[in-house]
């Protein structure tokens, strides 16, 4: 790049102010601002939300969703989409509430097998070139079916240790803030700053480049599916600790919400283009919109539509921005 001077172009190749600005802020900027604005509205409506207790009450239910969004983010980074994550989280919840209390070893083994099954699903999708949407949709019924076999009706009791771990809330800094910060920083450092993180993102956006650099694309994609499964389990863990019981259908709404969170957070379906901070912020945006709707007394039956509408609006806006950019470039 540096050896070929721009001869025909009049403008210099140095980044313009706008480019530098967008490079500085990145795709995570807008969703973070949006999350803060929504949170600000909630505080304006009920000032108590800003207190440590209020913060915990508002944000705690969003932790499982944020984990689900991160799980979905790994799959979207691979250039795929996961329609089974909701049922998978539901199965994890059922295993934690039913098998783990009576037989801890069997419960842990079950969870490990679930991760292995996700890896196998990743192998199948990557090696055979199968459409992830259909495979994960099919598998979602397998997870749901297994969960229903274990627990036909909601019930079970989550072990006390998990409940107190999940509800851990030190007096000064709310527990949710600690969890969110640790998860975001560790995941972001891994995916955006480590060597293998670059390989993982590359497997979705530039598989040929990754292959030529001597890395296994299939292994990278399987790693992404394993990461998705682990975050799915974490989501199930937090969900279990918060509800205290098991329900196969508990996380069904997470399928659309997790996709929405990734997309709101600046992710792209093209693969590779994801942002951890953006995804966490996107998850908070999607979740907080639900809480806000509850605050102003919107029926719960409207919430699915409202959250779907947000997803549509974000995509329409992004299509519009891309279109304007294209028009401006051609001028």
């Amino acid at each position: 790049m540096t050896t070929t001077p721009p001869i025909t172009r009049e403008r210099s190749t140095a980044p313009t102010a706008r480019e530098r600005l967008s490079g500085l802020f990145g795709p995570w900027f807008l969703p973070s601002v949006a999350a803060l604005i929504i949170f600000g509205i909630m505080v304006a409506l009920r000032p108590l939300v800003a207190s440590p207790t209020g913060l915990n009450l508002v944000l705690a239910p969003l932790i499982p969703l944020v984990f689900a969004v991160l799980a979905q983010m790994f799959v979207i980074a691979a250039g795929d989409i996961d329609l089974g994550i909701g049922s998978f989280i539901g199965l994890a919840n059922v295993v934690i509430a039913v098998i783990l209390p009576s037989n801890p070893a069997a419960g842990i083994l079950f969870l490990v097998v679930m991760v292995a099954a996700y890896a196998a699903m990743g192998v199948l999708i990557a090696v055979r070139g199968l459409p992830s949407i259909v495979v994960t949709l099919g598998m979602s019924f397998v997870w749901l079916g297994i969960a229903i076999l274990i627990l036909p009706t909601p019930g079970g009791v989550v072990p006390e240790g998990i409940v107190s771990f999940v509800r851990f809330n030190p007096p000064v800094v709310p527990g949710v803030i600690i969890v969110l910060t640790i998860v975001t920083v560790v995941t972001a450092l891994f995916l955006h700053r480590s060597k293998y993180g670059a390989v993982l993102r590359g497997s979705g956006s530039n598989a040929e480049g990754v292959r030529r650099a001597g890395w296994s694309v299939i292994r990278a994609k399987v790693s992404l599916y394993v990461l998705a499964a682990i975050f799915g389990l974490l989501s199930g863990l937090y969900l279990s600790g918060q509800t205290g019981g098991g329900d196969p259908y508990i996380a069904q709404s997470y399928v659309l919400l997790s996709i929405a969170g990734v997309i709101v957070g600046g992710g792209s379906f093209k693969g590779g283009e994801v942002s951890v901070v953006g995804a966490v912020a996107g998850g908070l945006v999607v979740g907080l919109i639900g809480s806000l709707l509850q605050f102003i007394g919107v029926q719960s039956s409207f919430q699915a539509a409202a959250q779907g509408l947000v997803l549509v609006l974000v995509l329409v806006l992004r299509a519009l921005v891309n279109w304007i950019r294209k028009v401006r470039r051609t001028l």
């Binding site: 099919g138 019924f141 969960a147 076999l149």
Partner: peptide
């Protein structure tokens, strides 16, 4: 059971 029907179909 309904669970098996889901598993088989998926």
């Amino acid at each position: 059971s309904g669970g098996w029907q889901f598993i088989i179909q998926g």
